[in-house]
């Protein structure tokens, strides 16, 4: 049933002059799924993700996000998704509360909603005492957890996470994944990229991009079986080593 797919792409392609960054990729993502989007540097992950977020127009092919068309309905797409990356997440010179308020405001949420949800969220993250501290003064792990919560604050259907746990300590990294699980349990679809291969195991399904194409897409268990590998790390290495592209 097509309605169960929250993301569908068909021969989606992006070319920059004579360079094909994303080369006819077709896949779908189930509603409520944690979908791992892997690939070596320069394989085309970022470009593909930008198209799915409605930030960049495809050269050809089709794609729908939450039922909206990536060519014509980018405004609707932006309203239905949340986004968080390792690099940009929150304003360091605003307090925790101000950041939450700001993002709530961007998505046009009512004051009552923002107020109520902020308190709930602070409690959830155990950040009540830090609510009026500047985000810049928090440890990295806390920032990342907060950034994730802010990205799903407006209750989007899908959240895109671009290397959300880079450089985070192992304990916080797991706490972060617990947040992801919880979000997924409430029905939010999670689309995540990572360089930690153990995190690939936490996804329901994983796709691996090589040279602009999706060379593998399945559950971690099935992928390991198919490539006769003990870990996702080995699967990834087998695939990524085939890459011929040396440039991004």
């Amino acid at each position: 049933m097509a309605t169960d797919y929250i993301i569908t792409t068909e021969e989606l392609t992006k070319r920059f002059n004579d360079f094909t960054a994303v080369d006819h990729i077709s896949f779908y993502v189930n509603k409520g799924e944690i979908f791992g989007f892997l690939g070596a540097n320069g394989a085309g992950k970022t470009t593909a993700m930008r198209m799915l977020c409605g930030l960049s127009l495809p050269t050809s092919g089709k794609a729908t996000i939450a039922g909206f068309d990536v060519y014509k309905q980018t405004e609707n797409i932006k309203r239905s998704i949340g986004y968080m990356s390792q690099k940009f997440s929150l304003y360091e010179d605003l307090t925790v509360r101000e950041n939450i308020r700001f993002y709530g405001g961007i998505y046009g949420k009512s004051n009552a909603f923002i107020k109520e949800k902020t308190n709930w969220l602070l409690q959830q993250l155990n950040l009540q005492d830090e609510a009026d501290k500047l985000v810049g003064s928090l440890p990295l792990g806390w920032k990342q957890k907060l950034a994730f919560s802010v990205a799903i604050f407006h209750e989007p259907q899908i959240v895109f996470l671009d290397e959300p746990t880079g450089g985070v300590d192992p304990v916080t990294r797991r706490e972060f994944w617990n947040l992801i699980y919880e979000a997924a349990a409430t029905g939010i679809t999670v689309f995540v990229t990572t360089h930690y291969m153990d995190e690939a195991e936490y996804c329901n399904r994983v796709s691996i991009m090589v040279d602009g194409r999706i060379d593998a897409l399945d559950t971690p268990v099935a992928l390991k079986e198919k490539f006769n590998a003990a870990t996702m790390d080995e699967v990834f290495l087998q695939l990524a080593r085939k890459a011929t592209r040396i440039d991004n």
Partner: peptide, 10 residues
């Protein structure tokens, strides 16, 4: 190796 993919890290 921060921000570098698994292959390049190896």
């Amino acid at each position: 190796t921060t921000g570098v993919d698994a292959v390049s890290r190896k």
